[in-house]
Write a protein that binds this DNA or RNA. Structure first.
Lengths: 248, 248
DNA sequence: AATTAATCATACATCTTACAAATTTAATTT
DNA sequence: AAATTAAATTTGTAAGATGTATGATTAATT
């Protein structure tokens, strides 16, 4: 039977409706990044709404990174950057991170990073090489007991490689995953004394292969590195599951 | 010279400050998903701010997917889902999509999808198989001239495989990339008459390898599929660059 | 007694008005 | 012409009032 009446009015709130309309013109590139939108007053007039509703809509768009609101100046369209993509994934992984997710992260890295190292070996610039060797020195010189710092340096090493691929989508994908490394490391590697020396060794080998533009070598070196890391993770995870409680 | 005094008060707006405080308690899991936050009135009292400022903060959190505001009911913490991660990346790719980005997308798919097919062959369930064969039938039966629909079916095929990996991070990463396929396809494949038949062939081969739990076979079949697709893309992109203008 | 309708309290949604603070623009002075 | 000052513009915050949805309670009807 066909319904006699359909719902009156929009289910969504006014501000959500406004968001959609403004988002549409941005997505359709009718206003470009750095360009100014009409003032609040004008927008109110155009949409026929109060400033309250309009401002709530603007704050939503601003929270998602589509616009910037500058007091006394106006409303500007943002150049939607990778930061706005990475942050939600970061939050997601942070909220979901538990024993299982650590293993998922390790699995994903094992799947993708060798291929990334491969491409990096082909596309790396001289500048990438410099960054990598500076990073390696830092890792060698870092205090052996500062797990968090080592995790950060480790993360940067892998990030430099991801950026060396010269494909902007790759850092987008892997940055949030690498971002977890310092936190995971502080749990997993807390007791592994040899971890630092080992990491330096593996990084050195990877760096050499990338320097020599040897894709297959870089691929294999990265596999070796990650397999070693995975073994550590699994051993210590099963040995000390209790520690994971500290995460939350 | 070091400044004697730093600015008084926070540079950021009141609402942004409120966002940080509420976000903190959610990140620290002091309130769990589905739990209710205090009412607007109480939050105003607690923070010592007006409803205007508070509501703008709430709308920001709601726009990012951290909370839901239900009229007449209250404010609830969300179960931060993968949808909130995928959407920003979707937007990013949509805004950046141009000739270069299409090639980046193809490259990323070539890098990661064979490995994904490999893992899917190992972890796939019977249900995954069913979904894949249903999808294949749909592709066979779809009208030959409806490029967009074919793109959607194609996308779903690859999404099913990504989900078959049983690693929740993988769909997170690849969904936004696959989401572009219908749009890209409508540009690239518009003139390729044989595209549909070819796609059916390749999909069939991949499906068989996954069915037989043959990781190496699935890997190779996926490589073949993507290399063919890449050739199409490049040929037609260089032949008809003008068409890209239609994107914006 | 059970079901349905009416009522009320609660909570979010929107509007209006007012003022504060930052920025930009114009005017003025040096 | 440059620097300073004043004015206008624009966003930030506040407070109060009205509108609308939700859920619980009470009254009425069957």
């Amino acid at each position: 039977m066909p319904a006699l009446f359909s719902k009156i009015g929009n289910q969504q709130t006014l501000s959500q409706e406004i968001v959609q309309k403004i988002e549409a013109v941005i997505r359709q590139k009718k206003v470009l990044p750095a360009e100014k939108l009409p003032t609040e007053k004008e927008l109110c007039r155009m949409f026929g709404v109060s400033r309250t509703a309009l401002r709530e809509a603007l704050q939503m768009l601003s929270a998602r990174g589509l616009i910037s609101i500058r007091k006394g100046s106006g409303i500007y369209v943002n150049d939607y950057s990778s930061a706005h993509v990475i942050e939600p994934m970061n939050l997601f992984l942070e909220l979901k991170l538990d024993r299982d997710y650590i293993l998922y992260v390790v699995e994903v890295r094992k799947m993708f990073e060798p291929t990334i190292a491969q491409l990096a070996a082909l596309n790396r610039s001289e500048d990438d090489l410099r960054k990598l060797s500076v990073n390696l020195q830092k890792l060698q010189q870092s205090p052996p007991d500062d797990c968090v710092k080592q995790g950060q340096i480790d993360r940067d090493f892998h990030l430099i490689i991801a950026n060396a691929c010269r494909n902007p989508i790759i850092p987008l994908i892997v940055t949030p995953i690498f971002q977890l490394m310092p936190r995971i490391r502080s749990i997993v590697y807390a007791n592994v004394k040899t971890a630092q020396r080992e990491a330096v060794d593996y990084h050195q080998r990877i760096l050499m292969k990338i320097r020599d533009r040897d894709p297959e070598g870089a691929y294999q070196a990265m596999i070796a590195h990650l397999q070693r890391a995975e073994r550590h993770s699994k051993e210590i995870l099963s040995a000390a599951d209790l520690k994971l409680q500290e995460l939350s």
